[in-house]
Design a binder for these strands. Structure first.
Length: 439
DNA sequence: TCTGGGGTCCTAGGACCC
DNA sequence: TCTGGGGTCCTAGGACCC
C-alpha cells in the first residue's frame, strides 16, 4: 500500500513526528554476467555479455564490455562486430541459474534485517532504520562484503531516506570503487541531485524525460524543487510522488510481504519464423502448459485468458500483423487441458494465413486464490482432473519439464527459442559441480 | 538472417444507468 | 425539429520497472 501524499498543512506536522527512515538499495553488479563468472573463473577479467531469450539482445554486460561501447538492450547482431573483434565472451541466458543465485543473495541479505523487499531478481530494498546515522554507511560496507564472501556476487549499495533517493545513492555507488554511498545525514543534497540527469531518476522513463525537458527540468534537483501543485497539474501523481521522495519525504513504502501476483504471462520469440497454423498451435499449447503449471504451483486459478500473436515489428517487408483476444472461462481454472482448449479456440479466431509470425504468448489474468475460488459446482470430475494435474506436476518436477505433456504440444518444436551460447550450468545438477582433480 | 520477457499501476474514454 | 448531465464501472492501452 502506498501512503497518501502529504499536502501543505500536514507537511510540517508530519515531518516533526516522523523519525528518519534509512533505506538501503542493494543491487547486484552486472548480475547475469556475475553469475556466469561464478562457475567460470577464466572470464573474470574479460569482457562478457549475456543475451536475452532467443539470443536477441544484450541484457547484461561486464564493465569491460561496457567500456567497449556495447549498449544495454542492443540487438546482438548489431554489436557482433565489436564482440568478435574484442573476443567478448557471449552467453545465452540461463534463468534457472540466475534465479538460484538470486535466492542465495536474498537469503544472505535477510540476515541483516528481515524487513526486506525483493524488488527484482538482482535488487532488494532493506530497512536499516535501526542503525544510527553514523554507523549506517559502515553497515553498508559490511553487507557488501558478506554478500561477496557468501555468494561471490559483487553489489552496489545506496542508502537514503526514501526509496527514490536510495536509487540515486545506488546510482552514485555504482561508479565508486567502494560500492557504497549513503546520503543519510547530509543537510543539503541539492549539489548531489544536480549531477543526476532526470532520465536516471527512478520512475522517469522516456516519455516523462521528454516532457520534463520541454519544461526545463534536466536534473533531479530541478524536479525536487519544482512546486507540487505544478507537477500534479501538468503531470500525474506518479511524478508528484517521485518529486516528494527526492525531497526526502517517503511516499513509497517498503513492501516486505510478498503479495500474490495478478497475472501470469508466458511468451517467446520463435527461433525461426512460424508460418503454419499447426506449429503456432504447438507453441501456444506449450506456453499454456507452462503458464498453468506456474499458477498451479502458486495455488491460483485464472478467470481470463488472452492469446496474442504477431509478426516482427522490425521487418515490414512481409507485412505486419498483430492481434490478440481475451475470453473468460466459465469457471476460474488452472487446468492445463482447459487452458489449452480455450487458447486454441482463440488462436483459430485470430490466426491469419500468409504471415511470418515472430512471437506469440498467453496471458492468464484475473487470478485468484484457488481456495477462495472453490464453488458449489466443483464435482468429482474436477477432483480427478486436479489430481491428474498434480501427478503431472510431480513427475515433471522430478524428471524434468516436458516429461509429461499434451499431444497438442507437439514433439518437434522447430519454433523453439535459440540458445546458441548456453552455459549449461545447473546448480541442482550434481554433474555441474566443479571438479577437483586428485593426484 | 538476426531486435527479450514478465510484471504493475494509472488513466482516458466508452458503456451504462438514472 | 429541438435531444441533459452526472455518476460509476470496466477495459484497453500506455508508461514504467527490471
Amino acid at each position: 500500500m502506498r501512503k497518501p501524499i502529504f499536502l501543505f498543512g500536514e507537511l510540517s506536522l508530519m515531518s516533526s513526528i516522523q523519525y528518519t527512515k534509512k533505506i538501503a538499495l542493494i543491487d547486484c553488479n552486472a548480475f547475469y554476467v556475475s553469475c556466469e563468472r561464478l562457475f567460470n573463473p577464466k572470464i573474470r577479467k574479460k569482457p562478457v555479455v549475456v543475451l536475452s531469450n532467443n539470443d536477441g539482445c544484450i541484457i547484461s554486460r561486464s564493465n569491460e564490455a561496457k567500456s567497449l561501447g556495447i549498449k544495454m538492450g542492443e540487438p546482438y547482431f548489431k554489436a557482433k562486430e565489436i564482440i568478435v573483434k574484442n573476443k567478448v565472451q557471449v552467453f545465452s541466458s540461463n534463468y534457472s541459474l540466475y534465479g538460484d543465485i538470486s535466492r542465495r543473495v536474498m537469503r544472505t541479505l535477510k540476515r541483516f534485517n528481515s524487513d526486506i523487499e525483493v524488488y527484482s531478481i538482482d535488487e532488494a530494498f532493506l530497512d536499516l532504520s535501526n542503525f544510527s546515522d553514523e554507523e549506517v554507511e559502515n553497515v553498508g560496507h559490511e553487507i557488501r562484503s558478506v554478500v561477496l564472501q557468501w555468494t561471490g556476487i559483487p553489489t552496489s549499495i545506496g542508502i537514503a531516506k526514501t526509496k527514490t533517493l536510495s536509487k540515486v545513492a545506488n546510482h552514485i555507488a555504482k561508479k565508486k570503487k567502494s560500492g557504497v554511498t549513503s546520503l543519510i545525514g547530509i543537510e543539503n543534497i541539492d549539489p548531489i541531485l544536480e549531477k543526476v540527469e532526470i532520465n536516471d531518476v527512478w520512475g522517469v522513463g522516456r516519455q516523462l524525460t521528454k516532457f520534463f525537458h520541454k519544461n526545463g527540468i534536466y536534473n533531479a534537483r530541478q524536479l525536487k524543487n519544482k512546486s507540487n501543485t505544478w507537477i500534479k497539474k501538468n503531470s500525474n501523481v506518479l511524478s508528484s510522488r517521485t518529486a516528494m521522495e527526492l525531497k526526502g519525504i517517503s511516499c513509497i513504502d517498503l513492501e516486505t510481504t510478498s503479495s500474490k501476483r495478478k497475472s501470469c504471462v508466458v511468451s517467446r520469440s520463435f527461433g525461426k519464423r512460424v508460418e503454419n497454423f499447426q506449429e503456432l498451435k504447438e507453441a501456444i499449447a506449450n506456453y499454456c502448459l507452462n503458464a498453468s503449471e506456474k499458477i498451479r504451483s502458486e495455488s491460483l486459478v485464472a478467470k481470463s485468458i488472452t492469446i496474442f500473436i504477431r509478426t516482427s515489428p522490425f521487418q515490414n517487408q512481409y507485412g505486419y500483423y498483430s492481434n490478440s483476444k481475451t475470453i473468460d472461462f466459465p469457471i476460474a481454472t488452472n487446468n492445463s487441458i482447459e487452458v489449452v482448449k480455450a487458447a486454441i479456440l482463440i488462436l483459430e479466431n485470430i490466426f491469419k494465413n500468409g504471415y511470418r509470425y515472430q512471437k506469440a504468448g498467453v496471458l492468464l489474468s484475473n487470478l485468484s486464490d484457488v481456495n477462495d475460488a472453490k464453488n458449489l459446482f466443483s464435482s468429482e470430475r474436477d477432483e480427478k482432473i486436479n489430481s491428474l494435474m498434480r501427478s503431472i506436476d510431480n513427475t515433471n518436477y522430478r524428471y524434468g519439464r516436458a516429461t509429461l505433456s499434451l499431444a497438442s504440444a507437439g514433439v518437434h518444436k522447430k519454433w523453439n527459442t535459440k540458445k546458441q551460447y548456453f552455459s549449461k550450468i545447473d546448480t541442482a545438477d550434481f554433474y555441474c559441480l566443479p571438479s577437483i582433480k586428485a593426484h
